[in-house]
């Protein structure tokens, strides 16, 4: 079988985050993610980070699975940590060969990194604890524009078909001796293969549309789903949003 890159692989586990109503979960975590990403202060960002880790632990998602996803963001933010200290003006920590590392730069680089990683950590309890189709339905119930909901739905469905098709093409290429090298020939070949894949996807799009119309599609696929809020859902929502708010209230309360 194919190894699909599935974000909802562990959605069948049981944890407070898994039981959390998907609509409330999305809203509460989105608020917290925005709050964390906009934090201006490193100490607060660390508090946000610790909170994010606690929520991740509460979700009981396997650490390996979580790290897999966090790893990519980490690669993305490393350049900030390296470059920022040398480009932001401020108090000098040390300098060599004309490059000056500043305290402010270092702090800013770490701030960017901590915020980004915290945000990604928070995405996991938000998305990975619900079957993705239910997340999409929750977005629909939250009155997200239907066009976007459909885009999510079709992307979610056909990304897997696309992955399988790409793997098939790739295997066929390898089976005929193709090797991935940084030569013009290799790049051209990959370009052509991708081109074919897009043509095929385009044609599939045509057929999918025909099939949709054959079952009476008029523009908005609707689904049946029941969501119900329980006391625990309100408690978790208040807890998460409360945490987001407190990140901004703490400085004024003179705690820090």
């Amino acid at each position: 079988m194919v190894n699909y890159p599935e974000i909802d692989r562990y959605s069948a586990l049981d944890s407070p985050m898994h039981r959390f109503d998907p609509r409330a979960k999305i809203i509460a975590f989105l608020i917290l993610i925005f709050a964390v990403v906009l934090l201006p202060d490193l100490k607060l960002a660390f508090i946000g980070f610790i909170g994010a880790v606690l929520f991740l632990i509460a979700s009981k998602l396997p650490l390996r699975f979580a790290l897999q996803h966090i790893k990519w963001v980490f690669l993305f933010v490393v350049p900030f940590i390296v470059i920022m200290p040398f480009t932001v003006d401020g108090t000098e920590i040390f300098s060599f060969y004309g490059l000056t590392m500043t305290y402010e730069g270092l702090e800013y680089g770490i701030l960017v990194a901590v915020r980004a990683i915290s945000a990604v950590i928070l995405v996991l309890p938000m998305i990975a604890t619900t079957r993705f189709d239910i997340t999409i339905k929750a977005l629909d119930r939250l009155k997200m524009p239907n066009m976007l909901v459909q885009m999510f739905m079709f992307t979610y469905r056909y990304i897997f078909v696309f992955v399988v098709e790409f793997q098939r093409t790739w295997r066929a290429m390898v089976a005929r001796g193709f090797k991935l090298k940084t030569s013009l020939y290799a790049l051209k070949t990959i370009g052509k293969a991708l081109g074919m894949l897009f043509v095929r996807s385009y044609e599939r799009g045509d057929r999918v549309y025909q099939a949709l119309r054959s079952r009476g599609y008029t523009g908005s696929p609707r689904t049946l789903v029941e969501f119900q809020m329980h006391a625990s859902d309100y408690i978790w929502a208040i807890l998460i949003i409360g945490f987001a708010v407190s990140l901004y209230v703490i400085p004024f309360a003179g705690v820090s």
Binding site: M153, Y156, A211, L212, R215, P221, T223
Partner: peptide
């Protein structure tokens, strides 16, 4: 694969009747 486009089998089968 051209025909099943909903995230789950239930939704897919329900799609036509809903329409």
């Amino acid at each position: 694969d051209d025909q099943l486009f909903m995230p789950t089998l239930f939704d897919d089968i329900a799609f036509g009747p809903i329409n």
